[in-house]
Design a protein around this nucleic acid. Structure first.
Lengths: 138, 138
DNA sequence: GGTAGTCCCTGTAGTAACTGCAGGATCAAG
DNA sequence: CTTGATCCTGCAGTTACTACAGGGACTACC
C-alpha cells in the first residue's frame, strides 16, 4: 500500500511548500531516489525521513549549511553526540543573542513612542527622537 | 569648512558600509544632491541627515519600505504624529512576536540538548529527538 | 474513447537588504 | 610625477525560498 510518494503528497504530509522540495534537490540536500517513467519524482520512506529531518532542523532555526552538516554526520554515522550537541548549543547561544538584541530594540522603540501624545500635528518628540543618532543602539 | 562630503567620508561618519549608500541611491531612497565634475557624489548636510535618519530606522528594525514611507511623511510634513506612532507600534508588536517565537525555539532546543550526556558515541537521544517530528513547534 | 481538472515537469525570475568585486578614472601627498 | 587611496560603473553573489509560465501526464467520469 505504501509505495513511493510523489512530490505533492510528500509536501502535504510534511506540511511544507511543494517548491521547497525541488529547491532542496537543486542544492543537493535531499532528493527523491527514483523517478517514474514520466519523470515524476518518487520518494521512498527513507527519502521522506531525510526530508523530514531537514525540515525539522530548519524549523528549529538551523541554517541550511548546518542542516547539510547534520544530515551528513547522522547518516554517515561519523558523528559523536558531543559534536551534535556542540552545534545545537552554538545555535542556541545565537538565538539567545538574537533575543537579547530584539529586546533591546523593543526597549528603544518603546522609549521613543512613549514621548508622543498621538496628536494630529506633525511636530512631535517621537519624530525628533527618531531622527537623532541612536544612543541605546549602535 | 564643511563643504559637501564624499561617499567614503559619509560612510565613516555614519558608520555604514560604503556600498549601502550606493544601494540606497539605486532604489531611490536617499541620493547625493550633487556630483563633482568628475562624477563623484557630493553629500550636502541635508543629504547626510536624510541618510542618517534612514540608517537609524533600519537599525531600529524597520523595513526599507517603512523607511521610505517615514522619510516621505516626515519630509513632506504630511504626517501626523499619530500615524508615525502607529507604524512604530505595529513594528513593536512584530518585534514582540519575534521574541516570543525565538524563546519558544530556544526552549525546544534546550529540551532536546538536555537529553544528551555528551558522549563520543553516535547513538544518542538528542539525535533521535531531532529526527522525530516536532511537538512543540509547528 | 474523449475530456476536464488536477497533478507534475522544467526553466527562470523575483523577494530583502545588502555586500563584494573587477576594471578603470580621479584625487591628494610627497 | 608617481604612488596609493578613493571614486566611478556594472554586475554577480548571498539566504532560503516562492511563484509563475508553458507544456506533459494522470485520474475520473460520461
Amino acid at each position: 500500500m505504501k509505495g513511493p510518494l510523489k512530490r505533492g503528497t510528500v509536501a502535504k504530509l510534511l506540511d511544507c511548500n511543494i517548491e521547497t522540495i525541488r529547491y532542496y534537490e537543486s542544492i543537493d540536500l535531499v532528493a527523491a531516489s527514483a523517478r517514474s517513467d514520466a519523470g515524476h519524482r518518487l520518494f521512498s520512506q527513507a527519502d521522506i525521513e531525510r526530508l523530514r529531518f531537514a525540515l525539522r532542523l530548519r524549523q528549529l532555526g538551523f541554517a541550511l549549511a548546518e542542516v547539510r552538516e547534520l544530515l551528513t554526520m547522522t547518516e554517515k554515522q561519523t558523528f559523536s553526540c558531543k559534536q551534535v550537541a556542540g552545534m545545537a548549543e552554538m545555535h542556541l547561544s545565537q538565538i539567545h543573542r538574537k533575543v537579547a538584541d530584539l529586546r533591546q530594540l523593543a526597549a528603544s522603540l518603546e522609549e521613543i513612542t512613549s514621548q508622543c501624545q498621538r496628536t494630529d500635528t506633525p511636530d512631535c518628540a517621537l519624530v525628533l527622537s527618531l531622527k537623532a543618532p541612536s544612543k541605546t543602539l549602535n
